[in-house]
Design a protein around this nucleic acid. Structure first.
Lengths: 231, 231
DNA sequence: TCAAAAGTGTTAACAGTACACCCATGT
DNA sequence: ACATGGGTGTACTGTTAACACTTTTGA
């Protein structure tokens, strides 16, 4: 860090790739419809400029709440995009975040800076503003990798979920068939799922028992050097 | 991204944690002695403000070359530190990078912005400016994890190295004993080392054959879905 | 001939993979 | 009784982990 020779003129923004999941559907991404230039009327990742008196982490959280009414269950920094020409007006660098929510717990609503906020299937994305396509691809890649060695997928499911939801989630995100028996054995061997007395009500076929993920136990094990791993 | 309500006043900097390794010594980190305020005369990570017309990636490379005469063999973005109060003067966010070099190929020299540039053992670090201690800890953690599933350690060794250097490197970085036979078997099973006709000259004991790391083959395998993994 | 480091195989335990049928429910 | 999805065990295969002596060189 040093004093600038002449005044630096770079703006700092945040953008968030928020994933949501509804059982047996594609993975979804949250986009907002811009109501200001540039790309007014176009879809983009939620985000915006960082304020002078807030941390970058706080900035994403604020923007997500302002633009879509969402407070993600999981949110971590993804990557900082710092190339030239990202924004047609000014030099803007963007600190991108990756977040996970359970959409059924979060009613979307668009506020001041956005005209609309919607879930889009990652397989049917509209074209998006700025370099947001690159950011989304980076996030997807990270999610696919990370879900295999950290139990972050549970943030996308209901508090109580049938085992099959977990199966479907992994199939959807990793994008390949899994062996139901082996997958269950592996997950169960960690002892991180608590069985509830409830069963899944809807749908046909035999009702599945509902489980919860034991976050506390995971933290404990993690501190003892335990590594969650799938596949 | 949106228009600012009032003008945003945040500076964007880069900082680099550059690791170096000399066989059978601790892992080293490159620090520079600041010749400007704040912390003038104190040690700090190489880095500085990003210029308006360069990408963030280019900024680190420039600063590293200006401040220490170094062009790292491996360099990747680490994390962006965006809290308030990092710099006593202005609001500054810093995009931190992690780099690896083989110190014997890089003579350090301090240039304009630094009074001195030196290697420090990670076990005997002086106190460092700003929040650089946190940055260093983040980098170390990342290095220790990453070296176990990506063959980045070779960037710290000579082009031609005896197998024992690799052993010592892993012992040093991961910080635990390894089984020499199993380690060798594992590494050799990937077929990524080319045997040369040369042997290690210095030191006592039986001379070891020198190997080179086959970068091209690794890239090929990687594209086919191969994952390097140790332990 | 001694000290120092390089080089090398086998076995046992464990983890991963492949694979198919019965069960509980609603209609 | 049938359609739908839930729940389960075993045998095989590959991988990891534990373990110690011989070889080559320089002093």
């Amino acid at each position: 860090m040093e004093s600038p020779k002449k005044l630096q003129d770079i703006k700092v923004a945040v953008d968030a790739v928020i994933f949501g999941y509804f059982d047996k559907r594609d993975l979804q991404i949250l986009l907002i419809k811009r109501n200001i230039e540039p790309f007014k009327g176009g879809w983009a990742l939620p985000g915006g400029l960082v304020l002078d008196d807030e941390s970058v982490d706080d900035a994403v959280k604020r923007e997500l709440y302002e633009e879509a009414g969402i407070k993600p269950d999981f949110l971590e920094q993804l990557y900082t995009f710092g190339n030239l020409g990202r924004d047609p007006r000014n030099r803007v660098i963007s600190v991108a975040y990756l977040g996970l929510v359970n959409p059924s717990y979060h009613e979307l609503f668009a506020d001041s800076d956005a005209e609309d906020a919607q879930w889009f299937s990652i397989n049917k994305l509209p074209s998006v503003a700025f370099d947001h396509k690159t950011i989304i691809e980076t996030a997807l890649k990270r999610l696919r990798t990370k879900i295999q060695y950290q139990p972050i997928g549970f943030n996308l499911l209901n508090e109580e979920f049938p085992f099959s939801d977990l199966e479907n989630l992994y199939k959807t995100i990793v994008g390949q068939e899994i062996d139901r028996r082996n997958f269950r054995k592996k997950i169960m061997s960690y002892g991180l799922l608590n069985e509830t007395n409830n069963v899944k009500k809807e749908g046909s076929g035999r009702p599945g028992k509902l489980f919860t993920f034991n976050k506390e136990k995971y933290k404990e094990l993690e501190e003892q050097g335990f590594y969650f791993e799938i596949k």
